[in-house]
Design a protein around this nucleic acid. Structure first.
Lengths: 140, 140
DNA sequence: ACTAATTTCATACAAAAGTATGAGTCCCAT
DNA sequence: ATGGGACTCATACTTTTGTATGAAATTAGT
């Protein structure tokens, strides 16, 4: 937090310095005020970009885990809502029986969903299904 | 890419406008050049920050997938090198037989490693092992 | 209202995963 | 040299997963 204060201090200092420079340069006839303003602008843009990039690093930590779900991919694979639920529960490490309990359906029903899921994802095992699903960004 | 060009076009336009404004205001005696320069600076800082944040979004994609492996955690759990290899292969979706083939050991050996792994990770299934291992940051 | 897709379930079988136990080899550290 | 950790393997058994097939019930869209 104090880094932010330090940074703003630097900005103010830079601002003052630039101001002084520009005031001085006004006394020099062969330097147009266009150029000066341009330089000031450029300097502040640089400063701004620097600041923007600094904020970036703070955010990356949080944003890093955000995964966008590819709804189009789900659509393209023809995965149904129920299959997606089962897929998510598989990914969380549940057994077929446990999934059945969560969804209030029989183990057999879960097996059916799982089998259909495997065909659509083109995999043979549930662990593969999970990695594949994450690759395709259809689960987190 | 053309968005970048557009953006730079906007910057140049803004620069010119600000320049004109500042030139005009020089003719107005009750507006100090300090203030003008300050405003110009502030405007460009804003522009710079905006640009910086735009660049940010491009980078997030790459940085987002970086995961630090917690070696201390592996140590703490007492996971051996072989167990870690098996764990990684489980996570990639391989069967016990396939893991055995990769490591040139029998399926039985793999099962032993897997069982020991489950005890150490305190899980009952390989899918659970994978999610747990990722939680603990011992695999990517 | 009718069709198509989804969801549900069963049975029966095959394959893979997981558990328990015991044991042999190799290495390295005391 | 010896005891312990790591790695290997086997056998036997249980449980879980996965496959195949068929079918009823339930939506949902035309």
């Amino acid at each position: 937090m104090f880094k932010v204060i330090l940074r703003f201090g630097l900005i103010i200092a830079a601002l003052l310095i630039l101001f002084q420079l520009s005031r001085m340069s006004l006394l020099i006839p062969d330097m147009s005020s266009d150029l000066i303003l341009g330089l000031v602008g450029a300097a502040f843009i640089g400063l701004g970009i620097y600041l923007g990039l600094k904020f970036r690093k703070v955010e990356i930590v949080e944003v890093g885990t955000v995964i966008e779900i590819d709804e189009q991919q789900i659509e393209a694979l023809g995965l149904t809502e129920r299959e997606m639920e089962v897929l998510r529960l598989i990914a969380s490490g549940l057994s077929n029986v446990e999934i059945g309990e969560k969804l209030f359906v029989s183990e057999n029903t879960v097996k059916t969903h799982v089998s259909n899921l495997f065909v659509k994802l083109d995999v043979k095992r549930r662990t593969q299904a999970v990695t594949r699903a994450k690759e395709l960004r259809i689960i987190e």
